[in-house]
Write a protein that binds this DNA or RNA. Sequence first.
DNA 1: CTGCACTATGAATCGCTAA
DNA 2: GTTAGCGATTCATAGTGCA
Lengths: 292, 292
Amino acid sequence: MEIFTDIYLGDSKEKLQLLPDNSVDLIVTSPPYADQRKSTYGGIHPDKYVEWFLPISEQLLRVLKPTGTFILNIKEKVVAGERSTYVMELILAMRKQGWYWTEEFIWHKKNSYPGKWPNRFRDSWERLLQFNKDKKFHMYQEEVMVPMGDWAKNRLKNLSDTDKIRDNSKVGSGFGKNISNWLTRDKAFPTNVLHLATECNNKNHSAAFPEELPEWFIKLFTKQNDTVLDPFMGSGTTLKVASRMKRNSIGIDIVPEYYEMVKKHIKPVELYILEPKPKYEKSKPERSITVR
Amino acid sequence: MEIFTDIYLGDSKEKLQLLPDNSVDLIVTSPPYADQRKSTYGGIHPDKYVEWFLPISEQLLRVLKPTGTFILNIKEKVVAGERSTYVMELILAMRKQGWYWTEEFIWHKKNSYPGKWPNRFRDSWERLLQFNKDKKFHMYQEEVMVPMGDWAKNRLKNLSDTDKIRDNSKVGSGFGKNISNWLTRDKAFPTNVLHLATECNNKNHSAAFPEELPEWFIKLFTKQNDTVLDPFMGSGTTLKVASRMKRNSIGIDIVPEYYEMVKKHIKPVELYILEPKPKYEKSKPERSITVR
DNA sequence: CTGCACTATGAATCGCTAA
DNA sequence: GTTAGCGATTCATAGTGCA
């Protein structure tokens, strides 16, 4: 079966209207955080954030299949010495809109940005909010299980070497207790805490979104030939991963540079899959590119 | 100087009224979670949680010194398949009450309990909400510094060009000073993610609060002879740690069994400090015990 | 092919100064 | 008064290059 990748240049609120109802299995996205990434996205004032996002999430709710999932990566910034509350207000507003707030995963950023301030430490985690349209949704838990044979090793690997040094007293004792429960199994389920480093190599326009992040959720919530949507695709990390994993993907971005970059990169990705594909231009609005 | 430990049996909302204004340096507590631990606390319905907690947080705001800090350990439970929103509503309500929501630390519970559900993974993190009365508060960051990673020794040999360039952005005098700072440095500041195992040996108390947790915050936010308050002391972990660290402590609990247990344990703790102390009964209401 | 050394950089935040 | 701009500060990781 063939996989498609559609990309759109424009405002998500508008472009999403071109998509049919109940057509997407998974939405994974990282919208511009309030007043951040000003140089590329213009910045949204914290007070206006909810108001700005709700029309988009309304469209997302429409295009998502009842069995689908929406993963929203976001973190509130510090405003005048305290954490801003717009993320909490957004969650409350989205629930009124009809979303279920199923779960909050934590992304522990092992290499968070350095800095020192008199009243706080470095921020090294972000929220990964899981929203659903229905209480019943597809979840393929066994796809993200971690090998059991070296369960302890894997758990330890999740923590950096320095963490191990820092926590040496408790690491061992914690395992001793539960290990007997697991000896008979060969795989273990993960938890709702993800330990990943941010991308820090010098690519052009490197994404702050490590590939492992969308990959994990794509494995967990979709199967092959399902459709993944990223309404703020940026450099296209989610789409790239989706293609590699044989999922259809749809991306939208308002920044022409990103749109062009993703457009250029779709081909190499297709070659990467090493499957012969017929050239074929789908009859779609000119802003949409389809690669088959 | 001597250290006191006061404990009260009763409802926090009422007992807190016995404490003077601006008298506490740090509040660390883990209140009963909504509708959980029913057998011991009776349980508070998620819908009533904010309403139940606000009169208590109002008293906490009164007794806390302007330079003090309030650490609230809490996590919303799952209700009808989705995360409940009472924690977010509580944060919003406490801000209206006059609190600053300075930061949200994550407690990553490394050995969270095994379990399997069709639609979610094991919950292995909790919130540690930091509230303050004033934007200026005491924080002794150097007390909780951790060993640097192994990469540091490589860094000593040769500073990378990037580091030189970044450091060069300031005036020459600052550059030299900065290098020397790095060369002599062997510790780094932590982040806002704490990796601790849950305590398993405390079967009598339904809340698993590892000693490292209050210890870390007591080190960070208080110095010797400061006063620490836990309005839901349970088995008294916070008080025990505070005593060991030579901080005064005040504990309240509504459950007689906990009150009696803590009362019995105060003596051993005092012996643990290995300091001769004069026997002395303070003249206080009979519900308050003072150990000197 | 493994291993070690080196380099670039990541959704940061505070406080002061200038307009 | 208020806000916008900029300097100062800082840690850990993955990729690249070379032995």
